[in-house]
């Protein structure tokens, strides 16, 4: 399923990357520990997290992730958005908790 469809189904707010939503999502990953994400996340995954500092963009870029969903209404930092823009990493925000959005995403793409 591609990002546009997922954004629509999950009612995600696009904080960055409105023009980069054609990518197909390979799966999901939930986690806030950057070392775990680096070790386990797969290319094309949609990453669900509460971390908002700009390091998340580096991780997403290195692991070639489809995008990042920030949960529980957490707004990304300005630096993070700027970095995401230059790296081409879409960033989304949802008011749902990680468990809820993971559950819904799981049912969409599995």
């Amino acid at each position: 399923m591609d990002l546009t469809a997922i954004v629509k189904e999950l009612k995600l707010t696009v904080a960055q990357g409105e023009l980069e939503l054609t990518r197909d999502v390979s799966g999901g990953y939930v986690g806030d520990l950057l070392s775990d994400v680096m070790a386990n996340c797969k290319e094309g995954n949609l990453w669900i997290t509460r971390q908002t500092h700009q390091n998340i963009v580096a991780v997403a870029s290195l692991k070639d992730l489809a995008g990042i969903i920030l949960v529980q209404g957490k707004e990304p930092e300005r630096n993070t958005l700027d970095k995401a823009s230059s790296e081409g990493i879409p960033i989304f925000v949802t008011k749902l908790s990680a468990f809820e959005v993971a559950g819904k995403l799981y049912n969409l793409i599995t």
């Binding site: 990953y29 939930v30 986690g31 468990f99 809820e100 559950g103 049912n107 599995t110």
Partner: peptide
């Protein structure tokens, strides 16, 4: 992984 575990439980009726 956390995504899979959350997904499976959600599918079976557990909620946030």
């Amino acid at each position: 992984i956390l995504f899979e575990a959350s997904g499976r439980l959600y599918t079976n009726g557990i909620r946030g």
